[in-house]
C-alpha cells in the first residue's frame, strides 16, 4: 500500500472570515452570528470570538486526508468538538496513520486540528480505503 503505520501529514486550512462566511452562506445555510461576527459572538455568546462551524472543521480534516492520500475513500470519520476553533486563527490540521490493514486495503488515521497555542479543539479518527498503486 502507499501508506505505512506512523506516516504523518499536515496542512494549514483557511479559516479566515471570508472563507467561513462563504461556508455559512454558499455551502450551507448557517449564517449565524456565532460563526460570522466576532463582536456579537463575544458580547452575546460569551465566546472568545466567532467560531468555525464544527461541520467545517470536520470537512477540513476530510480534506487533509484527501491531500495526503489522493484517490482514497473515507469510509468513516468521527470528530469530537472539544473547544471552539476561532475564525481568523491559524490552525494546523494533522493526521497520523495508526493502523494499516493490507488485506482490507484500509488505514486508520488519528486526526487533530491544533491552534496557535498548541491546543486541540477538534480531534477525530477516520477509516480510509486507500487507493492502490497501479
Amino acid at each position: 500500500m502507499m501508506v505505512e503505520f506512523g506516516d504523518e501529514f499536515e496542512f494549514q486550512p483557511d479559516v479566515s472570515m471570508p472563507t467561513v462566511k462563504s461556508f455559512t452562506t454558499e455551502a450551507t445555510r448557517m449564517d449565524f452570528w456565532r460563526f460570522t461576527d466576532h463582536e456579537k459572538a463575544r458580547e452575546l455568546g460569551g465566546l472568545p470570538g466567532a467560531i468555525v462551524p464544527g461541520i467545517m472543521s470536520q470537512g477540513i480534516l476530510a480534506a487533509a486526508i484527501h491531500r495526503f492520500l489522493p484517490g482514497s475513500t473515507i469510509r468513516k470519520i468521527d470528530t469530537i468538538f472539544r473547544a471552539p476553533l476561532l475564525v481568523d486563527s491559524s490552525p494546523t490540521a494533522r493526521g497520523v496513520v495508526t493502523h494499516v490493514d493490507e488485506e482490507e486495503g484500509t488505514a486508520e488515521i488519528d486526526l487533530t486540528l491544533v491552534n496557535e497555542a498548541g491546543e486541540t479543539p477538534v480531534l477525530g479518527t477516520a477509516v480510509v480505503e486507500v487507493a492502490r498503486a497501479e
Binding site: 462563504s22 470537512g59 476530510a62 491531500r67
Partner: peptide
C-alpha cells in the same frame, strides 16, 4: 469542497 480546502 472549496471552503474546506479539498484538492482531490
Amino acid at each position: 469542497a472549496r471552503c474546506c480546502g479539498e484538492t482531490d
